[in-house]
Amino acid sequence: MAKGQTEILGIAIVVVLVIMGLLFLLRFSTPGDSDILKQRLGRAQIANNVISAMLATSDTVCDAVKKPRLQDLLIDCAENQPSGSVVCKQQSTKPTLSCQYVKGVIAEEILAKTVEKWKYGYEFSVKREDKLIIPELKKTSAGQDGKCPAIAELDSQEYPLPTTTDIIKVKLKICN
């Protein structure tokens, strides 16, 4: 009996050690709170930098003389819905009005070469209250059209832009 008990005790000790080892492994393989916070701050900072740099960018492709900023084109689009009034690329065979033009530039020249290239998903919108000024731009982190997955962590920045009558909001959400 005593022998049997000793053997059972030995097995029990081994089982306890294995469980402790697994718990130890689990503890250090999942990201800690500070890592998650760092990732979130990083995404929020990227969103902030993209919007502020993008809005300040002067577009010589739209008009080499007037060089309107992208924020000016967005404001023009908001004030002259649904297409905008500024004609971009007047000298080319395909002049385009500001709404369609600025949407294309933001999607293909700004977001595609930054957020999308860095394998983040995004949702970009420009709204007056809850109404979209230009169609929402969204991509998943895999590069497919669509919203960020519901379970993904989203971090965003919002910029207000004043028009002559009210304020429109430029918002960029970024997810992993």
């Binding site: 002067s58 010589t60 492709v61």
Partner: peptide
């Protein structure tokens, strides 16, 4: 290493 990549306008 510090690089500055100018992206837009394309010119």
């Amino acid at each position: 290493k510090v690089e500055i990549e100018l992206l837009y306008p394309p010119s």
